[in-house]
Design a protein around this nucleic acid. Structure first.
Lengths: 213, 213
DNA sequence: TACTTACTGTGAAGCAACTCACAAAGACAT
DNA sequence: ATGTCTTTGTGAGTTGCTTCACAGTAAGTA
């Protein structure tokens, strides 16, 4: 695979979606599709789809469209989805446990292999198939299990501390559920999922979207 | 408050964050701040902060900066955060329950007032302070409790059905945890939170971000 | 009073993502 | 063959958010 330079984040997000949609179609026996069909499934435009596929260096043929199997292969290669990802979760509270149970065995290629907490009553328990360790073992386990993505589900006040610890341990991607922005060096990628913020934003648009045509 | 026309979604997201950061400062007794201080807390630039504040029609003074209390008031007015929001959740599975427990009593102004499921064993139970109803009562309860935001935590196969039901019941904002994009009329605002996708994206950037200065 | 300093408000420039619109090309019909 | 139809690939244009850079301004200083 040629080294495609700098694919924009938005495109990567859509690739993840395309991959899932295409895999569905493939498992139903469909072999090819056109840009407008994928666009309908992804709720965007044919032009967007074609541009995206062009961006990752793949091509289709004007009369058959895109070959689903080879497109999946290409996207997978881009996303590096071939190799299994080991993920660590820090903060075994309500949300942490929910993510563990929600996640386990459901997402091939993405596995939460270790959870961490400061609470001794949680240490060594196995929650939804995932063992809990004391947070002081974090760096050791990260190295041992070759983890490079971390999930943060600790209270806001501790999120930055945990982040710094993750960065020090060599984590390169952080998914943060705490409602604070994290400071990370630019060799590390951090994303925030904040349910309360999302709801507030939604509440705003629920009121301000046009009420009529 | 004057009708500010069309504040971009990105700005609204930052407003939600600013509001939280400013409230923290206010409760610590701070009265005013400068754009560069808020920028540091929000991890963006002073110019961005000033532009945002300008966009919502507020202003500061060159020597004292912005008045925190009045800025919060303004943001709250914009976000309509004064009135309490009633929220419905559909799909009382692992994730649904986690969100209920994670959310309850923690977010003033945002309350999940009713949960819905098809499973009779869940109906009438109270989970984390929130009562479950059978989904056939959805529209009735939505009207009764004046709900206009909904959370979807059902399996992907049912997400669109639930969405259509929500739209029919008059819901205007939908937060979707199922890994499929939803089709909604443009009078309704839908947002997707997909943990698996986020992790895949993160995994990609964990590998592709620059390794060194 | 005049000078310095530090900040805001904002027009204009810069960027990045999205869309348009059309040339090129294969399939099929006649 | 020749023409028609449909769809791809893509340069160019557009849109919308972000950043720059500087005039305007008020407080502090002497």
């Amino acid at each position: 695979m040629k080294l495609t330079k700098n694919i924009p984040a938005r495109t990567i997000e859509r690739m993840v979606l395309y991959k899932r949609l295409l895999s569905d179609l493939l498992s139903k026996g469909q072999k090819t599709l056109f840009s407008h069909q994928l666009a309908a499934l992804a709720h965007n435009t044919p032009a967007q789809v074609r541009r995206d596929i062009m961006t990752i260096g793949h091509e289709g043929s004007p009369h058959k469209g895109y070959d689903i199997a080879s497109l999946i292969t290409r996207i997978t290669a881009i996303l590096d989805g071939s190799k299994d990802r080991s993920i660590a979760l820090v903060g075994v509270g309500n949300l942490g446990r929910a993510i563990l149970s929600y996640f386990t065995y459901r997402h091939p290629g993405l596995t939460i292999v270790a959870a961490f907490d400061t609470d001794d009553s949680k240490v060594d328990r196995v929650i939804s198939g995932c063992r809990c360790y004391h947070i002081r073992e974090f760096e050791t386990k990260v190295r041992e299990l070759d983890i490079n993505v971390g999930i943060i589900t600790v209270p806001a006040t501790q999120a930055q501390n945990v982040t710094d610890m993750m960065v020090a341990a060599g984590i390169r991607g952080i998914l943060n559920f705490a409602p604070v922005p994290l400071k990370v060096p630019d060799t590390v990628c951090a994303d925030r999922i904040d349910i309360a913020s999302s709801l507030e934003k939604l509440a705003y648009f629920a009121d301000h979207l046009k009420q009529h045509e």
